[in-house]
Simulated assay, not measured.
Amino acid sequence: MIVTLIVAAEISWWIVLGLALSTRYLLRWRRTSTVLLLGLPAVDLALYALTVLDLRGGAEASWTHALAASYAGFSVGYGPSLVRWADRHFLHRFAGGPKPPPSPKYGPERTRYEWQIAGRTVVSAAITLTLITLLVPLSAGAAHYGTFAQWYWRLGIAAVVNVVVAGCYSRWPKEAPAGVAVVDGRAVEEEKTPARQA
């Protein structure tokens, strides 16, 4: 049941986002679009509330309940960046906006980008672990803790790995290959060497 709810929440999240962007750029209803965007967290809250109700109703705690909490945590950590990504691409595709630039690949811009990813992962892990911890008192009590305990070290490892990767980019920034012009951390053109005359 919980897996079905997670799938339904994921589909609902993208449908609401699609409706919000459509009303903003195609119908020019900015207020309606804003209301729909504010409804995105409601999808996550509904999934978490249904997860708690499922456990309180006597369901046996399983990894799917923790997965539902991790879905909400992921949405908090990565949701805003996903909305910005979708907004830029929708604007370009359907409303004549500029083409979204790719992620930076080189230099300090790449380092900042990696730290942004690490920050989102740490926030997602922290929110997820908080929600998983709250499942214990909100549901049937400490009997469920053992089922959820493994998520602590798994999410902890994921957060640490992301921080280590970002730290490596700080220590050893990625440089562009020779002959590649870079602007804002992105390759823009390749410098051509004039042909040698015979």
Rank of each mutant, 00 (worst) to 15 (best):
A66S: 09
R112T: 09
L135N: 01
R110W: 11
P80G: 05
A126R: 04
I11G: 08
I15E: 05
K99N: 14
E10G: 12
G179P: 07
V160Q: 06
V161W: 07
V182T: 09
A118V: 08
V7E: 04
E114V: 07
T193G: 08
V16A: 09
P101D: 15
P41E: 11
E60I: 10
L138S: 08
P173V: 11
V16N: 07
G58N: 03
A176P: 05
L138D: 01
I157V: 14
A9P: 02
L21H: 10
R120H: 10
H92S: 13
Q197W: 11
L45S: 02
A66T: 02
R84T: 06
G179A: 10
G179I: 11
Y71C: 00
R196A: 12
A198H: 09
L26D: 05
F148C: 00
G141P: 05
L135P: 03
M1E: 10
G77M: 01
K174Q: 15
R196I: 02
P194R: 10
L17S: 03
Y71V: 07
L38T: 02
T34P: 02
L36S: 07
H89N: 13
V163A: 10
S103G: 14
V163W: 10
A195Y: 12
W172P: 06
A8V: 14
A187L: 09
W63T: 15
A59I: 00
A166Y: 04
Y71Q: 04
Q197R: 14
L37M: 05
L155Y: 09
T4H: 11
A178M: 14
P108S: 06
S103Y: 13
T133S: 08
G18Y: 07
A195G: 06
D44N: 02
C168L: 15
T23A: 13
F74L: 12
L50W: 11
T130P: 01
